[in-house]
Nucleic acid binder design. Structure first.
Lengths: 156, 156
DNA sequence: TTCTAAGGTCAATATAGTTGACTTGAAGAT
DNA sequence: ATCTTCAAGTCAACTATATTGACCTTAGAA
């Protein structure tokens, strides 16, 4: 049986006094991240999965036959941290793992049909949220959003 | 002594194949959140503080004399989860806690000067990242970003 | 005085990660 | 054929951030 759905922290976008011009932007980033992932996380929770499982499924969907080592690099976590969620996904037959056809040392990961379905549904929840937001501001607004986020993402 | 700075997961924005039109947007949200908080988190880490401490400081800065109960509601965490970081901030004299002047039941939280300084510096790191990104797209782009994020944040 | 609300604390648990120290299994080199 | 190397896998101990549940204290209100 599933656990009760976790608490969905700070859902109700508290209206705090703004000390600076950009405070609204900081808060929007926080609530935006939450808003985008909330429905996907709720869906995943019904399957006993969570964010790290989705991240694995997402990456493997977009890079079939990725090795475990590459996956570790892409996700930026240790192999020990990867181990638990990855094992669960293999056990649940959402992923397959095989040695490379040339009998290489590394294992290659792929999604099964069930894995593809789950990845797609979870990502669909996120895309739906973004898509509806983009619809409200039109293509120029969407492009501006992407440009801002790209600049922020690359700011390190 | 501080611990070695944690691993800064998935820094290098892996270029994954895009299965859907909006995949780039999903990835940008992930890396955008990371990009905005990274330098602030590194600064906080030098003080032995982390995200939850910053969230507390941020809220108290913008709602002085907030009660513990309200803080719990705003942050969306349990009082037990609040307890640790809050105690540390009190111990470090970044916050003061006093009973209401009318000897009320609730305690009122305020930032000390040290608390204000830390809150400001940490938030400055985040504002700087956002500000530079906004500069690249102009006021209309910034407004579009805010509109998209607002729509995403309110999508639940 | 007893009830209630706010705060505080303790214990147990979950999740998501870390480092360190190994083992296993397959390739490649000598 | 053994030895070495490297990817993968496993085990243990730890940290941090959260959760519930149970319980206690404090202080105002009925």
């Amino acid at each position: 049986m599933q656990k009760t759905v976790p608490h969905a922290a700070g859902l109700h976008r508290a209206s705090l006094k703004k000390l600076h011009d950009l405070d609204a932007a900081l808060e929007l980033m926080y609530y935006g991240w939450r808003g985008m992932t909330l429905s996907a996380d709720q869906y995943l929770a019904t399957l006993g999965l969570s964010r790290p499982h989705h991240r694995i499924l997402y990456v493997v969907a977009r890079q079939p036959d990725v090795s475990i080592g590459s996956l570790i690099e892409i996700l930026g976590i240790s192999k020990q941290a990867l181990n638990r969620p990855l094992s669960l996904l293999l056990e649940r037959k959402m992923l397959t793992s095989r040695r490379s056809p040339e009998q290489h040392r590394s294992k290659l990961l792929r999604l099964t049909e069930a894995g593809k379905r789950t990845e797609q549904r979870a990502s669909d929840y996120e895309r739906k949220v973004v898509s509806e937001a983009f619809d409200r501001v039109g293509p120029r607004g969407a492009a501006a959003w992407m440009a801002v986020m790209g600049a922020i993402a690359d700011s390190n």
